[in-house]
């Protein structure tokens, strides 16, 4: 299973959000990083056909923009970090908005992320972290080949961060899913990365195995600040130097 991206560009009016991106995504966990405005969310949305793109995105010999939306939804799921919903929408409404949802899978993830007691709560009555958990549960309940998770660490506490990242790794390693996670939090996400894609200013800065990316010089160049890598056993922490 492979997602091939060739000469992908996205414009928002005069703003060129992404320019000529060439990529190959395979099974495993790929972490997408880059400074603010690098085009991380845009790349995720383009691959899910939520924003229109130029170039080609091919999965199993199919150009994904030419697939029927229902086919595409089986293939690829974009999980947003936040939704601007009408205040009376409940967490239950949010989880059940796709009528074709596999209920047993949904039940599993609702339990997994402790959402049962929130089903009848209105979206504005839950915390940002709880809403984010609900969005992740909804996304993972779709049994698609590719999961794109946008900032899963933005609002969740460390318990759920680790729980979600471990689950994504399981999905990638055991079920052979393609998992692409965009995040600004290098810790702890780099400990879960098999591959890294780094964007800077709408262009590809780095793509390759995580091991090759985890070098002080490369990270310093990407963000324009000095960093120190702290290693202990299999774990690595990236420490910015003030």
């Amino acid at each position: 299973m492979k997602l091939e991206v060739k000469r992908l560009s996205v414009d928002y009016g005069a703003v060129k959000a992404l320019r000529n991106i060439d990529l190959e995504l395979g099974e495993g966990v790929t972490v997408l990083i880059g400074p603010n405005g690098a085009g991380k969310s845009t790349l995720l949305k383009a691959l899910a056909c939520i924003v229109p793109y130029k170039g080609s995105v091919v999965f199993n010999n199919h150009e994904i923009s030419s697939l029927h939306p229902s086919e595409r939804m089986k293939l690829i799921t974009y999980i947003p970090p936040y939704v601007p919903a009408l205040p009376d929408i409940t967490i239950g409404d949010l989880l059940l908005v796709d009528t074709s949802m596999d209920r047993s899978r949904l039940n599993y993830y609702v339990n997994f992320l402790d959402l049962n007691h929130l089903l009848e709560r209105r979206i504005w009555e839950v915390s940002s972290g709880e809403l984010e958990r609900a969005l992740i549960a909804r996304g993972l309940s779709r049994n698609s080949a590719i999961y794109e998770v946008d900032e899963p660490l933005a609002h969740t506490d460390i318990r759920y961060q680790v729980r979600v990242l471990k689950e994504l790794r399981e999905l990638a390693w055991r079920e052979g899913k393609i998992v692409l996670i965009a995040s600004n939090q290098l810790n702890p996400i780099m400990n879960f990365a098999d591959y890294v894609i780094a964007l800077r200013g709408g262009e590809l800065f780095f793509t390759g195995p995580a091991k090759e990316f985890l070098k002080e010089k490369i990270i310093a160049k990407l963000y324009g600040i000095k960093v120190k890598l702290l290693k202990e056993g299999p774990y690595v922490d990236i420490l910015p130097i003030a």
Binding site: C49, I50, V51, H68, M73, Y78, P80, P84, L86, L94
Partner: peptide, 15 residues
């Protein structure tokens, strides 16, 4: 309409 109540992206996802 249910998708629109939640997010524009949910609507776009449905094509």
């Amino acid at each position: 309409m249910n998708a629109l109540n939640i997010s524009d992206d949910f609507v776009r996802e449905l094509g």
